[in-house]
Amino acid sequence: EFTQISGYVNAFGSQRGSVLTVKVENDEGWTLVEEDFDRADYGSDPEFVAEVSSYLKRNGGIKDLTKVL
């Protein structure tokens, strides 16, 4: 089950073990991109978060400006 990723309007994530599946949706709710990120592939949590965040930004993730990150 996908849940909204904090700080984004149209990005959602689903966690299974160490694998986080993220997706970005358009205004109609269609999935634009979907990608798996395995936490085990990264040396640290900040590196993992930075990679996921960068992916979302590159692929149309819209920041939720009503929330302070």
Rank of each mutant, 00 (worst) to 15 (best):
V52D: 01
E35W: 13
L32S: 07
L20A: 01
D45H: 09
E51N: 08
G13W: 15
P46M: 15
V19T: 04
K67W: 15
F37D: 01
S54E: 14
W30Y: 13
N59G: 03
D38E: 03
L32D: 03
E28T: 09
F37W: 01
D41N: 12
S18V: 04
V49E: 13
E47K: 03
V19R: 04
N10L: 04
V52M: 03
V52P: 01
V9I: 14
P46L: 15
Y42W: 06
F12Q: 02
V33E: 04
S54M: 10
R58W: 08
Y42V: 00
W30S: 11
G61S: 06
E35N: 11
Y8R: 06
E25F: 13
L56I: 15
D38Q: 02
I5K: 05
V24P: 00
D45C: 15
V68E: 15
R16M: 07
L69I: 15
E28L: 10
E51K: 10
V52G: 00
S53L: 12
R58F: 08
A40Q: 07
T21I: 07
W30Q: 14
W30A: 13
D36G: 05
E25W: 10
D36A: 11
V52Q: 00
G7S: 04
L69W: 08
G29T: 03
E34I: 14
G7I: 08
S6C: 15
P46W: 14
S14Q: 11
G13V: 11
E25R: 11
D41C: 13
N59V: 10
E34F: 10
G60A: 05
E34V: 13
G17N: 04
N26L: 08
V52W: 09
V24N: 01
L69Q: 14
K57G: 09
V19K: 05
Y55G: 02
G7Q: 05
A50Y: 09
F48S: 00
I62F: 08
D36Y: 10
T31Q: 05
T3Q: 11
E51Q: 10
D27V: 10
T66C: 15
L20P: 00
E25V: 15
E51A: 15
V49M: 13
T21E: 01
V68A: 09
F2D: 04
S53Y: 11
S54D: 14
K63D: 07
A40N: 11
L69M: 09
V24H: 00
R39F: 04
G7V: 04
R16F: 08
Q15V: 13
L69K: 07
S6V: 10
E35Q: 14
K23R: 14
G43T: 09
V9E: 04
A11M: 02
R16Y: 07
G29M: 02
D45E: 10
T66A: 08
G29F: 04
K23E: 01
K23H: 06
Y55C: 05
D38S: 02
F48K: 00
N10M: 03
R39D: 02
S53C: 15
F12K: 06
D27E: 11
E51T: 10
D64G: 06
F12E: 02
R58M: 11
E25M: 14
E1Q: 12
V52A: 00
F12S: 05
G17V: 03
T21P: 00
L20D: 00
D38K: 02
L65R: 07
G17K: 02
E1Y: 10
D27N: 12
E34S: 15
S44T: 08
E25D: 05
K67N: 15
T66V: 09
F12A: 01
Y8K: 06
L56S: 00
I5T: 03
K67S: 13
G43K: 13
R58G: 07
T3C: 15
L65D: 14
A40P: 00
E1H: 13
F48M: 05
R58H: 09
G61C: 15
G61D: 01
N26H: 08
V19N: 01
G43R: 09
V9N: 06
S14F: 12
G17I: 03
T21D: 01
V9Q: 07
G7N: 06
G17P: 01
F48V: 01
G29R: 05
F2Y: 09
D41P: 02
V68H: 11
D38I: 02
T31C: 10
N10K: 03
G17L: 04
V22L: 05
N59E: 05
Q4H: 08
T66Q: 12
P46R: 14
E1G: 14
L56M: 02
A11D: 02
V19G: 00
Y42E: 00
F2H: 05
K67T: 14
W30H: 12
K57Y: 10
L65Q: 09
D38C: 08
L32C: 10
S6L: 10
A11S: 03
Y8C: 09
G29D: 03
S54G: 09
E34W: 12
S6M: 10
Q4F: 09
L32N: 04
G60H: 06
N59A: 07
V9H: 08
G29S: 03
F2E: 03
S14R: 14
L32P: 04
Q15P: 05
R39H: 04
R16L: 07
S54H: 09
I62W: 05
I5F: 07
V22R: 00
D36R: 12
E34Q: 13
G7P: 07
L69T: 14
V52K: 00
V19H: 03
K67F: 15
G61Y: 04
T3S: 11
L32G: 05
S14G: 01
K63E: 14
S54L: 11
S6F: 09
F12N: 03
V24F: 05
V22E: 00
S14M: 12
G17F: 04
K57N: 14
T31F: 06
L32E: 06
E28A: 08
V68G: 12
E28F: 10
K63C: 15
V33T: 09
V33D: 05
L32I: 12
I5A: 05
S6T: 09
R39G: 00
W30T: 14
A11E: 03
W30P: 03
S18A: 04
Y55Q: 01
V22D: 00
E34G: 03
S44F: 02
S6R: 11
D41Q: 09
P46F: 13
V22S: 00
A11T: 02
F12W: 12
S18L: 05
I62Q: 07
N26Q: 04
K23D: 01
S54R: 12
V49K: 10
K67D: 15
A40Y: 06
F48R: 00
V68S: 09
K63Q: 12
G43W: 06
A50V: 06
D41M: 08
L69H: 15
W30M: 14
Q15S: 09
L32Y: 07
S18K: 04
S18R: 05
R39Q: 04
V33P: 03
K63F: 14
S53Q: 12
G43C: 13
Y8A: 06
K67A: 14
S18I: 02
S14C: 15
Y55L: 02
D45V: 08
D36H: 12
S14L: 14
N59Y: 11
K23F: 05
V33A: 13
E25S: 14
I62N: 04
A40M: 10
G43H: 11
Y42S: 00
W30D: 13
D45N: 06
Y42G: 02
A11Q: 01
L56G: 00
G61K: 04
K67H: 14
R16D: 05
E51G: 07
E25P: 01
S53K: 13
I5R: 02
K23L: 06
